[in-house]
C-alpha cells in the first residue's frame, strides 16, 4: 500500500466519527437532544477550552497517564518475565502456572473492596489494580508465543551451533513477538479500563476523579469531555502499539503490504 492510499484509508476511518459529531451538534441545536442529557459538541469543546486554560485538564491527564504507565510497567514487566521464565523452563512452569491460571479466573476488578481496605484511596491502590489487570494478558501471550515457536527452527539453531543466548535472541524471542504484541495491545485496553474504574471509585485527582467531581456539580459537559479523552488516550496507546508492531514485525507476511 502506498503512503497516499494508507492516508486515504485512515481518513475513511475518521469519516464516521465526524458525521456522528455533526449530527449530534445539529440535534442539540434543534433541541431534539436536551443539554441536561447530552450537551452539544460545541459545549464540550468549550469545557475543554475552559479546563485547558485553568490547567486542570492537563494536570489530570498527566496524573492519569503517569498512573497508567507506572501500573503498566510494573504489571507488564512481571508478566513478561514470568511468561519468559515459564516458556523456557518446565520447572518454573510446573511450579507457578497452575497457581497463575487460578488467579487469572478472578476478575481483577472484584478485588476493589479489598484493595481499598489495604491501600485506602492512595496511589498504591490504583497501581496495584492496573498492574494486576495488565499482568495476565502479557503473561499469557508471552508464554503462548514462546511455546508456539517452531521447534524445527530451534533445532536448526542448535545444529548451526547457536548458544543459549543466541538461540533466545535470534530464534525464540522473534518467534514469540507476534503473540507478545497481541498481549500488549490487549493489556493497553485493560490498563485504561482499570484506571477509569479505579479513579471513579476512589481518587483525589486524575481524569476519573475529574468526571466524578463534575457529576456532583452537574457539569455534564465535563463528564462527556472526560469520557472522550479516555477514548482518545486509549486510541493513542493502541496506535503507538500498532506502530511499534509494524516496525518490529516487518518480516511478517501480515505486515508486508501495510
Amino acid at each position: 500500500m502506498s503512503f497516499s492510499t494508507r492516508l486515504h484509508s485512515n481518513a475513511i476511518g475518521w469519516l464516521l466519527p465526524a458525521l456522528i459529531i455533526a449530527g449530534w451538534e445539529i440535534a442539540s441545536r434543534a433541541g431534539v437532544m436536551p443539554a441536561n442529557v447530552l450537551p452539544a459538541p460545541s459545549a464540550v469543546a468549550e469545557a475543554f477550552w475552559r479546563l485547558t486554560l485553568s490547567g486542570e485538564l492537563i494536570r489530570n491527564i498527566g496524573v492519569s497517564t503517569a498512573r497508567a504507565l507506572a501500573g503498566f510497567a510494573i504489571g507488564g514487566s512481571i508478566g513478561f518475565a514470568l511468561g519468559l521464565a515459564n516458556g523456557l523452563s518446565t520447572l518454573s512452569r510446573g511450579l507457578t502456572d497452575t497457581t497463575l491460571q487460578m488467579i487469572r479466573n478472578i476478575p481483577h476488578l472484584a478485588l476493589i473492596p479489598l484493595v481499598i481496605l489495604w491501600f485506602g484511596i492512595d496511589e498504591e491502590a490504583k497501581l496495584f489494580l492496573v498492574a494486576l489487570g495488565v499482568f495476565f494478558p502479557i503473561y499469557v501471550n508471552t508464554l503462548l508465543g514462546i511455546q508456539s515457536v517452531d521447534p524445527q527452527l530451534v533445532e536448526m539453531g542448535r545444529v548451526y551451533g547457536m548458544d543459549r543466548r543466541a538461540l533466545f535472541f535470534r530464534v525464540i524471542l522473534p518467534g514469540a513477538l507476534p503473540a507478545i504484541f497481541v498481549g500488549l495491545r490487549y493489556a493497553l485496553g485493560i490498563m485504561w479500563l482499570t484506571l477509569i474504574v479505579a479513579e471513579t471509585i476512589s481518587a483525589s485527582s486524575g481524569l476519573g476523579y475529574m468526571a466524578m467531581q463534575a457529576r456532583e456539580f452537574l457539569l455534564i459537559d465535563v463528564v462527556v469531555l472526560s469520557i472522550l479523552i479516555y477514548a482518545l488516550l486509549g486510541k493513542l496507546a493502541d496506535s503507538l502499539a500498532r506502530l511499534l508492531e509494524r516496525l518490529s514485525l516487518g518480516w511478517h507476511p501480515a505486515f508486508q503490504n501495510g
Binding site: 527452527l153 533445532e155 536448526m156 539453531g157 548451526y160 547457536m162 543466541a166 535470534r170 513477538l177 518480516w251
Partner: peptide
C-alpha cells in the same frame, strides 16, 4: 524443509551458517 528464520533477511539467514 528450508527452516529459514522468517524474521531475518536472506543474507542474515546465510550468516547463521557462520555462527
Amino acid at each position: 524443509e528450508p527452516r529459514l528464520l522468517p524474521w531475518a533477511s536472506v543474507v542474515e539467514n546465510v550468516e547463521v551458517g557462520l555462527t
